[in-house]
């Protein structure tokens, strides 16, 4: 079984090559293609990742121009038939702008770009990007964004539908204000749609999948991509 994942290159994506690198060289048993956004055709792929970066320069508002790319129409077909659609950082911003996911990502409360390693607590391990983790697991990943403060009006609904996937926490898994790097509502770092095949998160698993890149030699980022592969396998079997 050949699993094929597309990584979309929008004009201005800049974590595209990093994501392809991890899929090809770190995660075993997947094929990954870097696909220019105007050329993307969903039919060839089992899953799609919208990578981090500054699609269309984040002009107007982060993610909004990319949300109108033809690639999003293709991704919507995948969303509807249950294939995994993942947005990392800028990809998360695009998914909220395209209304694949609820809420919005606002400017960090510090008003500054922040690049640092944070801890994420897993609060839903059923999704296409978290099924290889245990509930309550804490993952170390870096963030790098200026607009990552998650906000949603109907938080209750999100909670009831089990759409919150990752929360910023301390290393011990406590959900403190200190552990929240950007002022996100309820420490939210990543969410999913009700069907749990579409996930968006601000931290970068592709930067945390190899021990050599991690301050504490962890490889928690790998679990995210392995979850995606597992999800595809279950779907296809």
């Amino acid at each position: 079984m050949n699993i094929k994942i597309a990584v979309i290159e929008f004009a201005g994506s800049n974590c595209d090559l990093d994501t392809v690198h991890v899929l090809k060289n770190v995660i075993k048993g997947v094929e990954a293609d870097l696909v220019w956004h105007n050329h993307f055709k969903e039919s060839k792929y089992d899953g799609v990742i919208l990578p981090g970066g500054f699609a269309f320069g984040d002009y107007l508002r982060a993610g909004i121009i990319a949300a109108h790319s033809p690639a999003i129409d293709e991704a919507r077909i995948m969303l509807d038939d249950g294939r995994p659609v993942i947005g990392i950082c800028n990809g998360f911003q695009i998914l909220t702008e395209a209304q694949f996911l609820p809420g919005a990502l606002l400017r960090n409360d510090s008003l500054k770009f922040i690049c640092k390693w944070v801890n994420l607590k897993v609060v839903n391990n059923n999704t296409a990007f978290s099924n290889k983790m245990n509930l309550g697991d804490v993952c170390a990943l870096p963030i790098a964004h200026a607009e990552g403060r998650y906000f949603v009006n109907n938080f209750k609904e999100l909670e009831e539908n089990n759409q919150i996937v990752f929360k910023y926490s301390t290393e011990q898994g406590e959900l403190t204000g200190e552990a929240n790097p950007n002022g996100s509502l309820e420490n939210i770092a990543g969410i999913c749609n009700i069907e749990q095949n579409c996930i968006g998160l601000m931290p970068h698993p592709e930067r945390a999948s190899e021990a050599i890149l991690s301050p504490k030699r962890t490889i928690h980022g790998k679990l995210f991509f392995e979850s995606m592969v597992e999800f595809i396998k279950r779907r296809l079997s």
Partner: peptide
Amino acid sequence: VYRQYDHEVGVRSVVKCGEGDSGVLRII
């Protein structure tokens, strides 16, 4: 200063800002 810089994009940064005397990058 360096918290405001994305010092990890490219997945090459092995010794990062504040962790050493120099920045160390791997050649993948």
